[in-house]
Amino acid sequence: MLSNLVKIKETFEKELAAVKDGAALESLRIKYLGRKSGMMNDVMQKIREVPPEQKSQYGSEANKLKGYITSKIDEAEQGLGGAQKKSADFFDVTLPGIPPVRGGYHPLELTRRMIEGIFQRLGYTIVEGPEAETDWHNFEALNFPKHHPARDMQDTFFLENDLVLRTHTSPVQIRTMEKTKPPVRIICPGRTFRCDWDITHTPNFYQVEGLMVDAGVSFADLKGTIDHFCRELFSPDTVTRFRPSYFPFVEPGAEVDIRCVKCGGKGCRVCKQTGWLEIMGAGMVHVNVLENVGYDSEIYTGFAFGMGIDRIAMLKFGIDDTRLHYENNLRYLEQFRGVC
């Protein structure tokens, strides 16, 4: 039985060599691969007559032969170029290939995942929270008293029943600490809202808030963590600068700059000639915040930081208008398909 297969193969090869045009090739295909009366069909049917101990070998050889014949015929057809003439035809390798069907991520999603990845590798858990928030979680617990001018720092959207659209993802800190004991090591990415709309602001945008609380955490630890993050995200030679600033929920509070990624510190349009780019706010978690969630601020200290994903995306990709992120023009979005 097996020798039969060898014979078929030899005959096929001879006949194939004799094929001159598409019509001949097509009749060859029907002869061997035709669904009803093709030779290979017959070969397959014959498996029933094969003694049981040879069945498996016969089956596999038969399949191999069928595959061989199919590919040879396909190959010959390619050679005939579909135009049904056989020659050493010119083949243009530069014609555009057929792109696989593939979509793309939004640049903000790409950026968010880069940031999440860095902190996950540092042992931070990713936590989320609601976008519509209570005044307590968004302000009060974060040491923004009701009638404090610090509330003017964030142009707030108000909802009914004393709710707000969260102005930062910091309330997720509070929600996490309210139900977890230290140590805490989290980042909270998500959508945030402020009543502002121009070339550098949109009424909603994305933030990542980070929080670490444990016994003996210091400002030096904050600096080390942020330095590491910036070098991972931008480049190993990224230089950071910490300067004092004020956010009610941290103290000492800081603003973090990196040396301009565009001009390297010489001063350009991107860094407004300062050589530095502001990338996040940070600081040691305020004792009032720790006490608001029932932590013993004598034992536990911690740091928090927060950055805008939209801003980081602008810096990473050189985008000059943040509104592009929400316009969703495909001419813009499709550019990011090659980002990995």
Partner: peptide, 13 residues
């Protein structure tokens, strides 16, 4: 994305 679709981000309003 593998299915060929492009991700969007629209406002919540």
């Amino acid at each position: 994305v593998t299915a060929g679709l492009q991700q969007l981000t629209n406002f919540s309003f």
